[in-house]
């Protein structure tokens, strides 16, 4: 006779203690619990608190911008994509002002559709790398200093700590971290993607793997990369000051200079040096 797992808990602490006991390996690997609570009630509270109109569009690229943080609820279907869209359209000041937000929901729908077509091939390179390096020149394993958040690059280590402690990262941090892993450290995107799925509350093979592939250039026309200016522009005042004090030297330079350092085997056309505008 199967044993039912417990449902009666007086507090969150009691629930966590029970789960530590039931899943000791998971707790041992990483003991952190996120402040973000699961469940439909918490999901509806987030839905009511979020901003969907011009304020979202204007600030969403900034680490302290008005993003919804609905992704974990959407990932497990606690909130359906359609009900979130309907709520957004009817709560923006004018319906059309929610377009940017609905467009982001579109990314989710799009990735789910691609996943349905690819199945387990979501773990394979959809296309070749467009970095001038063959796939086999990328390391297979995630280096330990990255896993531990001890790379010596401050904005990267901060992001890693946040990932591990909270299970959430702003989209811009995900892009910076992924590009750091793949292009600055030349590690294959699969190793990074697997690591993200251990920790992200919203971890989902479709959105996660295809975003990693988009950064890597195996699911896009060119690699995603950035420079320190871009990091400073979107992270408030956190990293103002001498780059050396933050271990940020490898990110100093124009897009052109960075590209020449990262991808010496290819010449990217002028257009490639522009920061990517299509998606954040």
């Amino acid at each position: 006779m199967s044993r039912d797992m417990r449902r009666d808990f007086a507090s969150r602490e009691e629930l966590v203690a029970y789960l530590q006991q039931e899943f000791p390996q998971a707790a041992q690997r990483s003991p952190h619990v996120s402040e973000t609570r699961g469940g439909r009630r918490a999901a509806e509270a987030r839905l009511r608190a979020a901003r969907y109109g011009t304020e979202y569009e204007r600030t969403r690229n900034h680490l302290d911008g008005q993003v919804s943080r609905l992704s974990p609820y959407i990932r497990y279907g606690v909130l359906g994509l359609n009900e979130v869209r309907e709520y957004a359209l009817s709560h923006a000041q004018r319906r059309f002002e929610a377009e940017k937000f609905v467009n982001e929901l579109g990314w989710r729908d799009y990735f789910q559709r691609v996943y349905r077509e690819l199945g387990d091939d979501i773990w394979e390179d959809v296309e070749d790398y467009k970095t001038g390096f063959p796939a086999h020149s990328y390391r297979q394993e995630l280096p330990e200093d990255i896993r531990q958040g001890q790379t010596g690059v401050r904005f990267i280590d901060d992001a890693i700590r946040e990932l591990i402690e909270t299970g959430y990262l702003h989209n811009h941090q995900r892009m910076w971290l992924a590009a750091y892993v793949v292009h600055w450290r030349r590690v294959c995107w699969q190793a990074g993607a697997r690591w993200f799925l251990e920790h992200l509350l919203d971890g989902d093979p479709a959105s996660n793997n295809l975003s990693w592939q988009w950064v890597a250039s195996t699911f896009s026309t060119k690699p995603y990369y950035y420079n320190l200016e871009n990091v400073l522009q979107f992270s408030g005042d956190r990293y103002r000051g001498t780059p050396q004090n933050f271990g940020h030297e490898a990110f100093v330079g124009t897009y052109e200079q960075i590209a020449r350092r990262l991808f010496p085997n290819i010449t990217l056309s002028d257009e490639h040096h522009e920061p990517r505008k299509g998606r954040r």
């Binding site: 449902r7 690997r29 469940g39 606690v78 251990e198």
Partner: peptide
């Protein structure tokens, strides 16, 4: 859970979702 080394924080989040559903958990 083991194959993917799913962390405790993801398990807690999902469990909290489950507790609001009329279901048996095994």
């Amino acid at each position: 859970l083991e194959e993917w080394r799913i962390s405790l924080k993801r398990i807690v989040f999902i469990y909290e979702c489950l507790l609001e559903l009329p279901i048996i958990i095994r």
